[in-house]
């Protein structure tokens, strides 16, 4: 079983990202569950969401403490929250950032991948300058580093369940998959 934690801000689509990823896993004939950090949410406030993917049905309902992957939708969060909390020693980090991984100040980690999801989202008209919706780009990039969720499944999931312009979201995911850096 793999466990993933997403960090975003209210309104960026972190919760939808976890849902779309879970759908992608199910479309790849796996079992999955997705849930937000349970609490009052608000636009702009930091949001955490989670996803579990497994070959067998998922029965556990406890929270996720030691994720295998951490996905950060907003680079500013890296200085506000300890995004590395609980990340397994051989776990991987994916950050929405225009910088190469070695330039990220607060992040000292082995496996770090970066993708400029904000620019990609804006290029495909997802969200606005002030509030880009980076979630589909981010999960496109995520499928590059996670074998359980191949790109075709992510695209299928977006075309089925993504809010907004499904075609544009799918293109964003594809471009992010192709441009994600720092992959090991």
């Amino acid at each position: 079983m793999i466990e993933i934690r997403f960090h975003g801000r209210g309104g960026q689509g972190a919760v939808v990202a976890s849902e779309l990823l879970a759908r992608a896993a199910v479309m790849n004939r796996l079992h999955a569950a997705a849930f937000p950090f349970f609490g009052v949410e608000r636009r702009g406030a930091p949001v955490t969401a989670f996803c579990r993917i497994d070959l067998k049905p998922i029965r556990t309902h406890s929270e996720i403490y030691f994720p295998d992957y951490v996905v950060v939708l907003d680079p500013d969060l890296v200085s506000m929250t300890n995004v590395l909390q609980g990340l397994k020693p051989d776990g991987a980090l994916l950050i929405n950032s225009a910088k190469e991984s070695c330039d990220l100040q607060h992040v000292k980690w082995g496996k770090v991948a970066t993708v400029d999801a904000t620019s990609i989202a804006l290029k495909y008209g997802l969200g606005s300058e002030n509030a880009p919706i980076v979630n589909t780009a981010i999960i496109g990039a995520f499928s590059k580093i996670c074998p359980q969720v191949p790109l075709e499944s992510v695209i299928e999931s977006i075309m089925k369940a993504s809010p907004g312009d499904k075609r544009a979201n799918a293109e964003a995911a594809k471009e992010a998959f192709e441009t994600v850096k720092g992959v090991w």
Partner: peptide
């Protein structure tokens, strides 16, 4: 009543 108030978009999400 004099339409003296306008609603302007905030320029950052946080």
């Amino acid at each position: 009543p004099t339409v003296a108030i306008t609603m302007v978009r905030e320029d950052s999400i946080c």
